[in-house]
Write a protein that binds this DNA or RNA. Structure first.
Length: 616
DNA sequence: TTAGGGTTAG
Protein backbone atom coordinates (compact mmCIF):
# COMPACT_ATOMS: atom_id res chain seq x y z
CA UNK A 1 0.00 0.00 0.00
CA UNK A 2 2.84 2.32 0.85
CA UNK A 3 4.55 1.68 -2.47
CA UNK A 4 1.35 2.50 -4.26
CA UNK A 5 1.08 5.61 -2.21
CA UNK A 6 4.57 6.68 -3.27
CA UNK A 7 3.75 6.11 -6.91
CA UNK A 8 0.59 8.13 -6.75
CA UNK A 9 1.63 10.99 -4.52
CA UNK A 10 5.41 11.27 -4.64
CA UNK A 11 5.65 14.86 -3.38
CA UNK A 12 3.11 14.39 -0.66
CA UNK A 13 4.73 11.17 0.55
CA UNK A 14 8.03 12.92 1.00
CA UNK A 15 6.22 15.64 2.91
CA UNK A 16 4.45 13.12 5.12
CA UNK A 17 7.74 11.24 5.60
CA UNK A 18 9.56 14.32 6.83
CA UNK A 19 6.60 15.22 8.98
CA UNK A 20 6.50 11.83 10.68
CA UNK A 21 10.26 11.82 11.16
CA UNK A 22 10.03 15.20 12.86
CA UNK A 23 7.27 14.07 15.17
CA UNK A 24 9.05 10.78 15.94
CA UNK A 25 12.17 12.60 17.03
CA UNK A 26 10.04 14.88 19.17
CA UNK A 27 8.40 11.94 20.92
CA UNK A 28 11.50 9.85 21.31
CA UNK A 29 12.96 12.71 23.28
CA UNK A 30 9.82 13.12 25.28
CA UNK A 31 9.44 9.41 26.03
CA UNK A 32 13.01 8.95 27.13
CA UNK A 33 12.64 11.77 29.60
CA UNK A 34 9.31 10.63 31.03
CA UNK A 35 9.54 6.85 30.89
CA UNK A 36 6.95 5.67 33.32
CA UNK A 37 7.91 4.54 36.77
CA UNK A 38 4.86 2.31 36.67
CA UNK A 39 6.29 0.06 33.96
CA UNK A 40 7.57 -2.50 36.43
CA UNK A 41 4.25 -2.96 38.15
CA UNK A 42 2.60 -3.99 34.90
CA UNK A 43 4.16 -7.38 35.16
CA UNK A 44 3.68 -7.69 38.91
CA UNK A 45 2.09 -11.08 39.66
CA UNK A 46 -1.34 -10.97 41.17
CA UNK A 47 -0.94 -12.31 44.63
CA UNK A 48 -4.23 -11.40 46.19
CA UNK A 49 -7.76 -12.48 45.62
CA UNK A 50 -10.65 -10.20 46.31
CA UNK A 51 -14.30 -10.59 47.03
CA UNK A 52 -15.63 -9.03 43.84
CA UNK A 53 -19.14 -8.41 45.10
CA UNK A 54 -17.63 -6.50 48.02
CA UNK A 55 -15.36 -4.52 45.63
CA UNK A 56 -18.34 -3.79 43.39
CA UNK A 57 -20.36 -2.56 46.37
CA UNK A 58 -17.56 -0.31 47.62
CA UNK A 59 -16.97 1.30 44.21
CA UNK A 60 -20.70 1.70 43.56
CA UNK A 61 -21.17 3.50 46.87
CA UNK A 62 -17.84 5.29 46.55
CA UNK A 63 -16.61 4.00 49.90
CA UNK A 64 -13.09 4.77 48.90
CA UNK A 65 -11.45 4.58 52.33
CA UNK A 66 -12.81 1.04 52.83
CA UNK A 67 -11.60 0.09 49.38
CA UNK A 68 -8.21 1.55 50.16
CA UNK A 69 -8.00 -0.62 53.25
CA UNK A 70 -9.11 -3.66 51.30
CA UNK A 71 -6.48 -3.13 48.62
CA UNK A 72 -3.63 -1.83 50.75
CA UNK A 73 -1.53 -4.92 50.07
CA UNK A 74 -1.41 -4.22 46.36
CA UNK A 75 -0.77 -1.41 43.89
CA UNK A 76 -3.48 0.34 41.87
CA UNK A 77 -2.00 -1.12 38.68
CA UNK A 78 -2.16 -4.65 39.98
CA UNK A 79 -5.65 -4.13 41.28
CA UNK A 80 -6.73 -2.78 37.89
CA UNK A 81 -5.42 -5.99 36.31
CA UNK A 82 -7.62 -7.90 38.70
CA UNK A 83 -10.60 -5.79 37.73
CA UNK A 84 -9.92 -6.31 34.01
CA UNK A 85 -9.83 -10.05 34.52
CA UNK A 86 -13.04 -9.99 36.51
CA UNK A 87 -16.42 -9.47 34.98
CA UNK A 88 -17.02 -6.28 36.83
CA UNK A 89 -19.17 -3.69 35.10
CA UNK A 90 -17.08 -1.39 32.89
CA UNK A 91 -18.51 1.72 34.57
CA UNK A 92 -17.15 0.55 37.91
CA UNK A 93 -13.73 -0.20 36.45
CA UNK A 94 -13.72 3.27 34.95
CA UNK A 95 -14.73 4.79 38.26
CA UNK A 96 -11.88 3.04 40.08
CA UNK A 97 -9.47 3.92 37.27
CA UNK A 98 -10.19 7.63 37.60
CA UNK A 99 -10.31 7.63 41.39
CA UNK A 100 -6.99 5.81 41.72
CA UNK A 101 -5.20 8.16 39.32
CA UNK A 102 -6.34 11.08 41.41
CA UNK A 103 -5.85 9.45 44.81
CA UNK A 104 -2.37 8.07 44.20
CA UNK A 105 -1.33 10.91 41.89
CA UNK A 106 -0.26 8.50 39.23
CA UNK A 107 -0.79 8.30 35.55
CA UNK A 108 -1.85 4.79 34.63
CA UNK A 109 0.19 2.93 32.11
CA UNK A 110 -0.81 3.22 28.46
CA UNK A 111 -1.63 -0.49 28.32
CA UNK A 112 -4.19 -0.05 31.10
CA UNK A 113 -5.76 2.86 29.27
CA UNK A 114 -6.07 0.75 26.14
CA UNK A 115 -7.60 -2.15 28.03
CA UNK A 116 -10.12 0.24 29.54
CA UNK A 117 -10.93 1.66 26.11
CA UNK A 118 -11.59 -1.86 24.87
CA UNK A 119 -13.69 -2.73 27.88
CA UNK A 120 -15.81 0.39 27.39
CA UNK A 121 -16.03 -0.23 23.64
CA UNK A 122 -17.31 -3.78 24.24
CA UNK A 123 -20.19 -2.37 26.24
CA UNK A 124 -20.68 0.37 23.62
CA UNK A 125 -20.00 3.14 26.14
CA UNK A 126 -18.61 5.46 23.51
CA UNK A 127 -19.41 8.65 25.39
CA UNK A 128 -17.28 7.42 28.29
CA UNK A 129 -14.40 6.58 25.92
CA UNK A 130 -14.70 10.05 24.49
CA UNK A 131 -14.41 11.79 27.82
CA UNK A 132 -11.63 9.45 28.98
CA UNK A 133 -9.69 10.19 25.78
CA UNK A 134 -10.20 13.86 26.34
CA UNK A 135 -8.65 13.51 29.79
CA UNK A 136 -5.93 11.25 28.33
CA UNK A 137 -4.72 13.75 25.70
CA UNK A 138 -4.96 16.69 28.07
CA UNK A 139 -2.29 15.26 30.36
CA UNK A 140 1.21 16.58 30.04
CA UNK A 141 2.78 13.20 29.54
CA UNK A 142 1.33 12.30 26.20
CA UNK A 143 2.24 9.10 24.46
CA UNK A 144 3.31 8.95 20.86
CA UNK A 145 0.66 7.91 18.38
CA UNK A 146 2.68 4.88 17.34
CA UNK A 147 2.87 3.63 20.93
CA UNK A 148 -0.87 4.20 21.40
CA UNK A 149 -1.69 2.36 18.17
CA UNK A 150 0.68 -0.44 19.07
CA UNK A 151 -0.79 -0.77 22.52
CA UNK A 152 -4.34 -0.76 21.15
CA UNK A 153 -3.41 -3.53 18.75
CA UNK A 154 -1.68 -5.76 21.30
CA UNK A 155 -4.24 -5.35 24.07
CA UNK A 156 -6.83 -6.97 21.85
CA UNK A 157 -10.19 -5.56 20.99
CA UNK A 158 -11.89 -5.82 17.68
CA UNK A 159 -10.63 -4.05 14.61
CA UNK A 160 -13.82 -2.00 14.42
CA UNK A 161 -13.53 -1.00 18.07
CA UNK A 162 -9.96 0.14 17.50
CA UNK A 163 -11.07 2.23 14.56
CA UNK A 164 -13.70 3.91 16.69
CA UNK A 165 -11.21 4.52 19.50
CA UNK A 166 -8.69 6.08 17.12
CA UNK A 167 -11.46 8.18 15.60
CA UNK A 168 -12.23 9.52 19.05
CA UNK A 169 -8.54 9.97 19.86
CA UNK A 170 -8.16 12.27 16.86
CA UNK A 171 -11.26 14.15 17.93
CA UNK A 172 -9.79 14.58 21.41
CA UNK A 173 -6.58 15.99 19.89
CA UNK A 174 -8.64 18.44 17.85
CA UNK A 175 -10.62 19.57 20.89
CA UNK A 176 -7.34 20.06 22.72
CA UNK A 177 -5.92 22.07 19.77
CA UNK A 178 -3.20 19.44 19.21
CA UNK A 179 -3.55 19.75 15.47
CA UNK A 180 -0.19 18.25 14.54
CA UNK A 181 -0.86 15.16 16.64
CA UNK A 182 -4.32 14.83 15.10
CA UNK A 183 -2.89 14.95 11.61
CA UNK A 184 -0.14 12.49 12.46
CA UNK A 185 -2.66 10.09 13.97
CA UNK A 186 -4.77 10.46 10.84
CA UNK A 187 -1.83 9.44 8.67
CA UNK A 188 -0.76 6.57 10.93
CA UNK A 189 -4.33 5.28 11.15
CA UNK A 190 -4.03 4.70 7.41
CA UNK A 191 -0.87 2.61 7.92
CA UNK A 192 -2.62 0.50 10.54
CA UNK A 193 -5.67 0.20 8.32
CA UNK A 194 -7.97 1.74 10.95
CA UNK A 195 -11.08 3.06 9.28
CA UNK A 196 -11.79 6.65 10.27
CA UNK A 197 -15.03 8.57 9.90
CA UNK A 198 -16.32 12.10 9.54
CA UNK A 199 -16.57 12.18 13.36
CA UNK A 200 -12.85 12.90 13.51
CA UNK A 201 -12.04 13.97 9.97
CA UNK A 202 -14.50 16.87 9.77
CA UNK A 203 -13.46 18.58 12.99
CA UNK A 204 -9.81 17.99 12.04
CA UNK A 205 -10.37 19.58 8.63
CA UNK A 206 -12.13 22.42 10.43
CA UNK A 207 -9.23 23.19 12.75
CA UNK A 208 -6.73 22.90 9.88
CA UNK A 209 -8.68 25.53 7.96
CA UNK A 210 -8.88 27.70 11.07
CA UNK A 211 -5.10 27.47 11.44
CA UNK A 212 -4.73 28.23 7.73
CA UNK A 213 -2.84 24.97 7.06
CA UNK A 214 -4.30 24.75 3.60
CA UNK A 215 -1.73 22.37 2.10
CA UNK A 216 -2.51 19.88 4.87
CA UNK A 217 -6.25 20.26 4.23
CA UNK A 218 -5.66 19.22 0.65
CA UNK A 219 -3.60 16.21 1.75
CA UNK A 220 -6.32 15.09 4.18
CA UNK A 221 -9.02 15.51 1.54
CA UNK A 222 -7.13 13.41 -1.03
CA UNK A 223 -6.25 10.82 1.59
CA UNK A 224 -9.87 10.55 2.67
CA UNK A 225 -10.86 9.79 -0.89
CA UNK A 226 -7.95 7.41 -1.43
CA UNK A 227 -8.68 5.51 1.78
CA UNK A 228 -12.40 5.48 0.98
CA UNK A 229 -13.28 7.28 4.19
CA UNK A 230 -16.91 8.27 3.86
CA UNK A 231 -17.22 11.99 3.30
CA UNK A 232 -20.38 14.02 3.77
CA UNK A 233 -21.52 17.44 2.58
CA UNK A 234 -19.84 19.00 5.60
CA UNK A 235 -16.46 17.48 4.72
CA UNK A 236 -16.68 18.93 1.21
CA UNK A 237 -17.82 22.29 2.56
CA UNK A 238 -14.84 22.60 4.88
CA UNK A 239 -12.42 21.71 2.10
CA UNK A 240 -14.10 24.25 -0.19
CA UNK A 241 -13.76 26.85 2.55
CA UNK A 242 -10.05 26.02 2.84
CA UNK A 243 -9.45 26.55 -0.87
CA UNK A 244 -11.47 29.77 -0.80
CA UNK A 245 -9.43 31.15 2.08
CA UNK A 246 -6.21 30.17 0.32
CA UNK A 247 -7.45 32.24 -2.66
CA UNK A 248 -7.67 29.10 -4.81
CA UNK A 249 -11.19 29.66 -6.06
CA UNK A 250 -10.78 27.50 -9.14
CA UNK A 251 -9.84 24.56 -6.95
CA UNK A 252 -12.77 25.33 -4.64
CA UNK A 253 -15.06 25.13 -7.66
CA UNK A 254 -13.44 21.83 -8.68
CA UNK A 255 -14.32 20.37 -5.27
CA UNK A 256 -17.96 21.37 -5.84
CA UNK A 257 -17.88 19.46 -9.14
CA UNK A 258 -16.12 16.59 -7.43
CA UNK A 259 -18.81 16.32 -4.77
CA UNK A 260 -21.52 16.31 -7.43
CA UNK A 261 -19.68 13.56 -9.32
CA UNK A 262 -19.63 11.52 -6.10
CA UNK A 263 -23.37 11.82 -5.75
CA UNK A 264 -23.55 14.66 -3.23
CA UNK A 265 -25.77 17.63 -3.77
CA UNK A 266 -24.13 20.92 -2.74
CA UNK A 267 -26.17 22.62 -0.02
CA UNK A 268 -27.04 26.28 0.42
CA UNK A 269 -24.06 26.46 2.77
CA UNK A 270 -21.75 25.09 0.05
CA UNK A 271 -22.81 27.91 -2.27
CA UNK A 272 -22.56 30.42 0.58
CA UNK A 273 -18.97 29.42 1.26
CA UNK A 274 -18.07 29.70 -2.40
CA UNK A 275 -19.86 33.01 -2.75
CA UNK A 276 -18.15 34.41 0.32
CA UNK A 277 -14.83 33.21 -1.13
CA UNK A 278 -15.46 35.22 -4.29
CA UNK A 279 -16.49 38.29 -2.30
CA UNK A 280 -13.23 38.21 -0.32
CA UNK A 281 -10.71 36.88 -2.83
CA UNK A 282 -12.36 37.02 -6.23
CA UNK A 283 -10.11 39.71 -7.71
CA UNK A 284 -11.37 41.82 -10.61
CA UNK A 285 -15.10 41.50 -11.17
CA UNK A 286 -15.48 39.49 -7.99
CA UNK A 287 -19.03 40.61 -7.28
CA UNK A 288 -20.08 39.70 -10.79
CA UNK A 289 -18.69 36.22 -10.14
CA UNK A 290 -20.34 36.03 -6.70
CA UNK A 291 -23.65 36.96 -8.31
CA UNK A 292 -22.99 34.18 -10.82
CA UNK A 293 -22.76 31.68 -7.96
CA UNK A 294 -26.22 32.77 -6.78
CA UNK A 295 -27.61 32.15 -10.26
CA UNK A 296 -25.91 28.75 -10.44
CA UNK A 297 -27.33 27.91 -7.03
CA UNK A 298 -30.87 28.76 -8.11
CA UNK A 299 -30.52 26.89 -11.40
CA UNK A 300 -29.45 23.83 -9.41
CA UNK A 301 -32.68 24.03 -7.44
CA UNK A 302 -31.14 25.23 -4.16
CA UNK A 303 -33.07 28.02 -2.46
CA UNK A 304 -30.96 30.91 -1.19
CA UNK A 305 -31.29 31.48 2.55
CA UNK A 306 -30.94 34.65 4.63
CA UNK A 307 -27.18 34.30 4.94
CA UNK A 308 -26.82 33.85 1.17
CA UNK A 309 -28.24 37.33 0.71
CA UNK A 310 -26.27 38.69 3.65
CA UNK A 311 -23.01 37.57 2.06
CA UNK A 312 -23.91 39.18 -1.24
CA UNK A 313 -25.19 42.39 0.37
CA UNK A 314 -22.05 42.78 2.46
CA UNK A 315 -19.89 42.00 -0.58
CA UNK A 316 -21.52 44.78 -2.59
CA UNK A 317 -21.24 47.17 0.37
CA UNK A 318 -17.51 46.47 0.70
CA UNK A 319 -17.20 46.93 -3.06
CA UNK A 320 -18.72 50.39 -2.51
CA UNK A 321 -21.68 49.47 -4.69
CA UNK A 322 -24.60 50.46 -2.48
CA UNK A 323 -27.18 50.46 -5.24
CA UNK A 324 -26.40 46.81 -6.03
CA UNK A 325 -26.51 46.00 -2.30
CA UNK A 326 -29.94 47.62 -1.97
CA UNK A 327 -31.17 45.74 -5.04
CA UNK A 328 -30.21 42.44 -3.42
CA UNK A 329 -31.85 43.64 -0.18
CA UNK A 330 -35.13 44.20 -2.06
CA UNK A 331 -34.82 40.89 -3.87
CA UNK A 332 -34.33 39.14 -0.57
CA UNK A 333 -37.57 40.60 0.78
CA UNK A 334 -39.31 39.86 -2.53
CA UNK A 335 -38.49 36.20 -1.95
CA UNK A 336 -40.21 36.34 1.41
CA UNK A 337 -37.01 36.35 3.49
CA UNK A 338 -36.90 38.73 6.43
CA UNK A 339 -33.68 40.74 6.76
CA UNK A 340 -31.97 40.14 10.09
CA UNK A 341 -29.57 42.06 12.31
CA UNK A 342 -26.61 40.99 10.20
CA UNK A 343 -28.32 42.21 7.01
CA UNK A 344 -28.99 45.64 8.50
CA UNK A 345 -25.56 45.88 10.06
CA UNK A 346 -23.89 45.29 6.68
CA UNK A 347 -26.06 47.91 5.04
CA UNK A 348 -25.66 50.45 7.84
CA UNK A 349 -21.91 49.96 7.80
CA UNK A 350 -21.79 50.20 4.01
CA UNK A 351 -23.72 53.46 4.01
CA UNK A 352 -21.63 54.89 6.87
CA UNK A 353 -18.42 54.08 5.01
CA UNK A 354 -19.69 55.91 1.95
CA UNK A 355 -20.58 58.91 4.07
CA UNK A 356 -24.33 58.37 3.58
CA UNK A 357 -25.21 58.85 7.20
CA UNK A 358 -28.81 59.88 6.53
CA UNK A 359 -29.53 56.62 4.69
CA UNK A 360 -27.76 54.69 7.43
CA UNK A 361 -30.02 56.32 10.03
CA UNK A 362 -33.11 55.48 7.95
CA UNK A 363 -31.99 51.86 7.88
CA UNK A 364 -31.52 52.01 11.63
CA UNK A 365 -35.14 53.22 12.03
CA UNK A 366 -36.37 50.52 9.70
CA UNK A 367 -34.43 47.92 11.63
CA UNK A 368 -35.85 48.98 15.00
CA UNK A 369 -39.32 49.30 13.43
CA UNK A 370 -39.22 45.70 12.31
CA UNK A 371 -38.59 44.61 15.89
CA UNK A 372 -34.87 43.92 15.61
CA UNK A 373 -32.54 44.88 18.44
CA UNK A 374 -29.38 46.86 17.81
CA UNK A 375 -26.25 45.09 18.89
CA UNK A 376 -22.63 46.09 19.46
CA UNK A 377 -21.85 45.79 15.75
CA UNK A 378 -24.67 48.21 14.86
CA UNK A 379 -23.35 50.68 17.43
CA UNK A 380 -19.79 50.42 16.22
CA UNK A 381 -20.84 51.01 12.63
CA UNK A 382 -22.93 54.05 13.61
CA UNK A 383 -20.21 55.51 15.85
CA UNK A 384 -17.87 55.26 12.90
CA UNK A 385 -20.49 56.83 10.64
CA UNK A 386 -20.86 59.86 12.92
CA UNK A 387 -17.10 60.10 13.35
CA UNK A 388 -16.55 60.15 9.62
CA UNK A 389 -18.90 63.10 9.40
CA UNK A 390 -16.90 64.78 12.17
CA UNK A 391 -19.98 64.60 14.44
CA UNK A 392 -17.93 63.58 17.45
CA UNK A 393 -20.47 64.81 19.94
CA UNK A 394 -23.14 62.52 18.49
CA UNK A 395 -20.67 59.64 18.27
CA UNK A 396 -19.82 60.12 21.94
CA UNK A 397 -23.51 60.27 22.89
CA UNK A 398 -24.06 56.93 21.19
CA UNK A 399 -21.07 55.53 23.06
CA UNK A 400 -22.27 56.90 26.42
CA UNK A 401 -25.79 55.58 25.85
CA UNK A 402 -24.73 52.01 25.21
CA UNK A 403 -24.83 51.02 28.87
CA UNK A 404 -28.51 51.98 29.20
CA UNK A 405 -29.29 49.57 26.39
CA UNK A 406 -27.44 46.80 28.14
CA UNK A 407 -24.50 46.86 25.75
CA UNK A 408 -20.87 47.03 26.85
CA UNK A 409 -18.40 48.85 24.64
CA UNK A 410 -15.76 46.44 23.39
CA UNK A 411 -12.25 46.96 22.06
CA UNK A 412 -13.61 47.80 18.59
CA UNK A 413 -15.94 50.48 20.01
CA UNK A 414 -13.07 52.06 21.92
CA UNK A 415 -10.72 51.88 18.95
CA UNK A 416 -13.29 53.47 16.66
CA UNK A 417 -13.80 56.40 19.01
CA UNK A 418 -10.10 56.73 19.87
CA UNK A 419 -9.33 56.91 16.17
CA UNK A 420 -12.04 59.53 15.69
CA UNK A 421 -10.54 61.71 18.46
CA UNK A 422 -7.04 61.25 17.02
CA UNK A 423 -8.17 62.25 13.55
CA UNK A 424 -9.87 65.31 15.00
CA UNK A 425 -6.59 66.26 16.69
CA UNK A 426 -8.01 65.63 20.17
CA UNK A 427 -5.26 63.34 21.34
CA UNK A 428 -5.73 64.06 25.05
CA UNK A 429 -9.30 62.79 24.83
CA UNK A 430 -8.09 59.75 22.92
CA UNK A 431 -5.56 58.98 25.64
CA UNK A 432 -8.26 59.51 28.28
CA UNK A 433 -10.40 56.93 26.48
CA UNK A 434 -7.48 54.53 26.43
CA UNK A 435 -7.20 54.92 30.20
CA UNK A 436 -10.95 54.51 30.61
CA UNK A 437 -10.90 51.27 28.66
CA UNK A 438 -8.23 49.88 30.93
CA UNK A 439 -10.45 50.63 33.94
CA UNK A 440 -13.37 48.68 32.43
CA UNK A 441 -11.33 46.51 31.81
CA UNK A 442 -11.18 46.28 28.04
CA UNK A 443 -7.58 45.73 27.05
CA UNK A 444 -6.01 47.92 24.38
CA UNK A 445 -4.74 45.95 21.41
CA UNK A 446 -2.40 46.73 18.53
CA UNK A 447 -5.18 48.60 16.73
CA UNK A 448 -5.62 50.89 19.78
CA UNK A 449 -1.93 51.75 19.71
CA UNK A 450 -1.89 52.11 15.95
CA UNK A 451 -4.66 54.73 16.17
CA UNK A 452 -2.79 56.63 18.90
CA UNK A 453 0.62 56.37 17.23
CA UNK A 454 -0.95 57.59 13.99
CA UNK A 455 -2.56 60.44 15.90
CA UNK A 456 0.74 61.63 17.36
CA UNK A 457 2.58 61.26 14.06
CA UNK A 458 -0.03 63.29 12.21
CA UNK A 459 0.56 66.06 14.74
CA UNK A 460 4.30 65.79 14.17
CA UNK A 461 4.85 64.57 17.75
CA UNK A 462 7.50 62.01 16.94
CA UNK A 463 8.78 61.58 20.47
CA UNK A 464 5.35 60.82 21.93
CA UNK A 465 4.74 58.38 19.09
CA UNK A 466 7.92 56.45 19.74
CA UNK A 467 7.19 56.46 23.48
CA UNK A 468 3.84 54.82 22.74
CA UNK A 469 5.54 52.35 20.44
CA UNK A 470 7.86 51.32 23.28
CA UNK A 471 4.95 51.22 25.71
CA UNK A 472 3.09 48.90 23.35
CA UNK A 473 5.97 46.51 22.86
CA UNK A 474 6.73 46.53 26.58
CA UNK A 475 3.19 45.36 27.15
CA UNK A 476 3.93 42.38 24.92
CA UNK A 477 1.97 43.73 21.99
CA UNK A 478 4.00 43.27 18.85
CA UNK A 479 3.98 45.94 16.15
CA UNK A 480 2.18 44.66 13.06
CA UNK A 481 2.23 45.53 9.38
CA UNK A 482 -0.21 48.40 10.00
CA UNK A 483 2.03 49.92 12.70
CA UNK A 484 4.84 49.96 10.16
CA UNK A 485 2.64 51.34 7.41
CA UNK A 486 1.61 54.21 9.69
CA UNK A 487 5.23 54.98 10.52
CA UNK A 488 6.31 54.65 6.88
CA UNK A 489 3.56 57.01 5.83
CA UNK A 490 4.62 59.60 8.38
CA UNK A 491 8.23 59.51 7.15
CA UNK A 492 7.15 59.73 3.51
CA UNK A 493 4.94 62.73 4.28
CA UNK A 494 7.99 64.43 5.81
CA UNK A 495 9.91 63.82 2.59
CA UNK A 496 12.04 61.12 4.21
CA UNK A 497 11.22 58.23 1.90
CA UNK A 498 14.70 56.78 2.11
CA UNK A 499 14.42 56.41 5.89
CA UNK A 500 11.00 54.89 5.35
CA UNK A 501 12.54 52.30 3.02
CA UNK A 502 14.87 51.47 5.93
CA UNK A 503 11.81 50.47 7.94
CA UNK A 504 10.93 48.05 5.14
CA UNK A 505 14.21 46.23 5.79
CA UNK A 506 13.42 46.22 9.52
CA UNK A 507 10.09 44.56 8.75
CA UNK A 508 11.85 41.69 7.03
CA UNK A 509 14.25 41.33 9.95
CA UNK A 510 11.23 41.03 12.27
CA UNK A 511 9.39 38.65 9.92
CA UNK A 512 6.53 41.10 9.40
CA UNK A 513 5.34 40.68 5.83
CA UNK A 514 4.89 43.96 3.98
CA UNK A 515 1.50 44.47 2.36
CA UNK A 516 0.45 46.26 -0.80
CA UNK A 517 -0.08 49.34 1.34
CA UNK A 518 3.55 49.20 2.50
CA UNK A 519 4.98 49.27 -1.02
CA UNK A 520 2.37 51.69 -2.35
CA UNK A 521 3.12 54.14 0.47
CA UNK A 522 6.82 54.04 -0.38
CA UNK A 523 6.20 54.36 -4.13
CA UNK A 524 3.91 57.31 -3.43
CA UNK A 525 6.55 58.85 -1.18
CA UNK A 526 9.22 58.67 -3.88
CA UNK A 527 6.78 59.97 -6.52
CA UNK A 528 5.84 62.94 -4.34
CA UNK A 529 9.54 63.72 -3.91
CA UNK A 530 9.83 63.55 -7.72
CA UNK A 531 12.19 60.58 -7.50
CA UNK A 532 10.57 58.48 -10.24
CA UNK A 533 13.56 56.20 -10.62
CA UNK A 534 13.40 55.20 -6.95
CA UNK A 535 9.63 54.75 -7.29
CA UNK A 536 10.09 52.36 -10.23
CA UNK A 537 12.83 50.50 -8.36
CA UNK A 538 10.47 50.05 -5.42
CA UNK A 539 7.82 48.69 -7.78
CA UNK A 540 10.38 46.20 -9.11
CA UNK A 541 11.30 45.23 -5.54
CA UNK A 542 7.63 44.76 -4.69
CA UNK A 543 7.27 42.30 -7.57
CA UNK A 544 10.48 40.52 -6.64
CA UNK A 545 9.16 40.14 -3.11
CA UNK A 546 5.99 38.53 -4.40
CA UNK A 547 3.44 41.35 -4.54
CA UNK A 548 1.83 42.20 -7.86
CA UNK A 549 1.09 45.90 -8.33
CA UNK A 550 -2.58 46.76 -7.78
CA UNK A 551 -4.78 49.68 -8.82
CA UNK A 552 -3.34 51.94 -6.12
CA UNK A 553 0.24 51.16 -7.25
CA UNK A 554 -0.64 52.26 -10.77
CA UNK A 555 -2.57 55.28 -9.53
CA UNK A 556 0.39 56.63 -7.54
CA UNK A 557 2.83 55.93 -10.37
CA UNK A 558 0.56 57.52 -12.99
CA UNK A 559 0.11 60.55 -10.75
CA UNK A 560 3.87 60.78 -10.22
CA UNK A 561 4.61 60.70 -13.94
CA UNK A 562 1.82 63.18 -14.72
CA UNK A 563 3.17 65.62 -12.15
CA UNK A 564 6.56 65.47 -13.83
CA UNK A 565 4.88 66.13 -17.21
CA UNK A 566 5.79 62.66 -18.48
CA UNK A 567 2.40 62.05 -20.02
CA UNK A 568 3.50 59.38 -22.47
CA UNK A 569 4.86 57.19 -19.69
CA UNK A 570 1.73 57.84 -17.62
CA UNK A 571 -0.36 56.73 -20.57
CA UNK A 572 1.78 53.60 -20.93
CA UNK A 573 1.19 52.77 -17.25
CA UNK A 574 -2.56 53.21 -17.69
CA UNK A 575 -2.48 50.80 -20.63
CA UNK A 576 -0.40 48.30 -18.64
CA UNK A 577 -2.89 48.50 -15.78
CA UNK A 578 -5.81 47.75 -18.11
CA UNK A 579 -3.89 44.96 -19.84
CA UNK A 580 -3.34 43.34 -16.47
CA UNK A 581 -7.12 43.24 -16.01
CA UNK A 582 -7.05 45.72 -13.13
CA UNK A 583 -10.20 47.78 -12.77
CA UNK A 584 -9.50 51.54 -12.60
CA UNK A 585 -11.28 53.40 -9.83
CA UNK A 586 -12.49 56.90 -9.08
CA UNK A 587 -8.96 58.04 -8.19
CA UNK A 588 -7.66 56.84 -11.55
CA UNK A 589 -10.42 58.85 -13.20
CA UNK A 590 -9.57 61.95 -11.21
CA UNK A 591 -5.88 61.72 -12.15
CA UNK A 592 -6.28 61.08 -15.88
CA UNK A 593 -9.85 62.03 -16.64
CA UNK A 594 -9.40 62.70 -20.35
CA UNK A 595 -7.43 59.53 -21.04
CA UNK A 596 -10.06 57.54 -19.18
CA UNK A 597 -12.86 59.14 -21.16
CA UNK A 598 -11.05 58.34 -24.38
CA UNK A 599 -11.03 54.72 -23.28
CA UNK A 600 -14.78 54.79 -22.74
CA UNK A 601 -14.88 55.14 -18.93
CA UNK A 602 -17.62 57.30 -17.41
CA UNK A 603 -18.56 57.75 -13.77
CA UNK A 604 -22.15 57.23 -12.59
CA UNK A 605 -23.99 59.37 -10.07
CA UNK A 606 -22.07 57.74 -7.18
CA UNK A 607 -18.74 58.21 -8.92
CA UNK A 608 -18.36 54.53 -9.88
CA UNK A 609 -16.71 53.96 -13.19
CA UNK A 610 -18.34 52.13 -16.05
CA UNK A 611 -16.72 51.26 -19.32
CA UNK A 612 -19.28 52.29 -21.92
CA UNK A 613 -17.36 50.74 -24.80
CA UNK A 614 -17.47 47.32 -23.09
CA UNK A 615 -21.05 47.53 -21.86
CA UNK A 616 -22.56 48.45 -25.24
C1' DT B 1 -15.92 23.01 15.70
C1' DT B 2 -20.29 24.03 8.09
C1' DA B 3 -21.99 30.23 6.19
C1' DG B 4 -22.75 36.14 7.13
C1' DG B 5 -21.98 42.00 10.16
C1' DG B 6 -18.12 46.30 13.50
C1' DT B 7 -11.65 49.01 14.67
C1' DT B 8 -6.08 50.81 12.75
C1' DA B 9 -2.37 51.83 7.19
C1' DG B 10 -1.96 53.59 0.84
Amino acid sequence: MNHLCHLQFPKKSIYIGIYLLKLNLQYQTRLSSTSSSLDSSITTPISHTFDLSRVSELITNQHWSDLKTLTNQTTPNTFLHVLFQSELDSDLVLRYFKWSEEEFRVSHHLELYCRLFHLLANSKKYGKIRSLLHHFVKKDETHSNSSIFHSLSVTGGGFCANSIIVDMLILAYVYDSKTDLAFEAFLRAGDYGFKLSTTSCNPMLGILVKERKFAVVEIVYKEMIRRRIELDVISFNIVIKGFCQAGKLKKAGDVVEDMKARGFSPSAVTYNILMYGYCKNGGAGKMYKADGILKEMVSNGIHPIESTFNILIDGFCKDENLSAAMKVFKEMQGQGLKPGVVTYNSLINGHCNEGKLYDALCLWDEMVGSGLKLNIVTYNALIKGFSKKKMLKEARELFDGMGERGLDADVVTFNTLIDAYCKAGKIEEAIALRDLMMDKPVFPDVATYNCLIGGFLREGKMEEASKLLDDMENKGLRADVITYNIRLNALCKKGESRQAAGLLDEMFERCIRPSHVTYNTLIDGYCTEGNLRAALNMRARMEREGKQPNVVTFNVLIKGFCQKGKLEEANGLLNEMLEKGLVPNRTTYEIVKEDMMERGFVPDIDGHLYNVSVNT
